[in-house]
């Protein structure tokens, strides 16, 4: 099981802040493909990956990052701190 977290408009589009997913996905991209196939709201949220950022276990990474051993994956738009 992996915890998946969504922030900002990704959270709003999917309608959830976090959920647990039982997945065998090898990479973030594989996980995204599984989520997209679920429901329209996921397909919409993940329609343009260039507009998204991903963190695995709270470290920024890329969509081709492996998920072996990962506990937490977060999807969000580019950050706007400061």
């Amino acid at each position: 099981m992996i915890d998946i977290l969504y922030f900002a408009w990704v959270r709003e589009r999917i309608g959830l802040a976090r959920e647990q997913v039982d997945t065998q996905a090898a990479t973030v991209a594989d996980l995204v493909a599984e989520l997209r196939a679920r429901e329209e709201r996921y397909a919409l949220a993940f329609s343009d990956l260039s507009a998204l950022r991903v963190a695995v276990d709270q470290d920024l990474t890329d969509f081709d990052a492996p998920l072996a051993g990962a506990r937490e994956v977060a999807f969000f738009p580019p950050m706007t701190g400061g």
Partner: peptide, 12 residues
């Protein structure tokens, strides 16, 4: 400032 604007997970 430069780094926390785009590398710290805040959204306005």
């Amino acid at each position: 400032m430069d780094y926390l604007k785009s590398r710290a997970p805040f959204w306005k």
